[in-house]
């Protein structure tokens, strides 16, 4: 009965319930709602499934531990995307530093790293599995500051205002970065359009 009632609440109402009454069920519903969108977002940004699952877990733990730092003036989705984005960026920078000292260099411009072979994962296999892998690889070659914006806009379908809030960048800059990212992707994926 309580579960049905909680399921009908908005994200902001759920986090408020968790803050005020420490209702773990409300937190669990939030986890259920956001685990897949965040996994998708982080995976498209980093290209490593294991790491992205760890980052999303860390995000959820941060939400649990710092629930009181959420202020109801912001949307819950922007708050949780900000946490996940910060963790993903930290991980990306860590990997980049590691790659500098590593003997192997990944990608053409040194900005990207190999995509792990996910072909055995049933949730990745599609009819156009190869095409998806090519797009993902191309996405990882886009500059990280543009890539994040493109993913949030075109894959996660967030509004420009939400992206600006998540990344802490002005809306105008967000728009220009998205277009630059799309432009880079277009150049990388020219051959796919011919199909």
């Amino acid at each position: 009965m309580i579960d049905i009632k909680l399921n009908g609440l908005t994200d902001e109402e759920l986090i408020l319930e968790f803050q005020q009454n420490n209702t773990v069920k409300a937190y669990e519903i939030l986890v259920q709602r956001y685990k897949n969108p965040l996994i998708n977002y982080i995976y498209r940004f980093l290209g490593d499934y294991e790491t992205c699952a760890d980052i999303v877990q860390e995000t959820m733990i941060k939400v649990y531990r710092n629930k009181d730092s959420y202020k109801s003036i912001a949307k819950f989705s922007t708050w949780i995307y900000t946490i996940a984005g910060n963790l993903a960026r930290t991980e990306y920078q860590r990997r980049k530093r590691r790659n500098i000292f590593s003997i192997n260099s990944y990608g053409d411009d040194g900005e990207t790293f190999d995509i792990s072979d996910e072909s055995a994962r049933p949730d990745v296999i599609t009819d156009s599995g190869i095409k998806d892998k090519i797009i993902q690889k191309a996405l990882l070659k886009v500059s990280d500051s543009y890539r994040e914006m493109v993913i949030l806009r075109d894959i996660q379908e967030l509004s420009y205002e939400e992206i600006a809030e998540v990344t802490g960048i002005a809306v105008g800059t967000v728009k220009s970065r998205i277009n630059r990212g799309r432009n880079q992707l277009q150049k990388l994926l020219k051959h796919i359009y011919k199909d």
């Binding site: 685990k35 996994i39 990745v124 994926l189 796919i192």
Partner: peptide
Amino acid sequence: LLKQMPKITA
């Protein structure tokens, strides 16, 4: 192309 990409699940 980006919208058609499969959704990754947890």
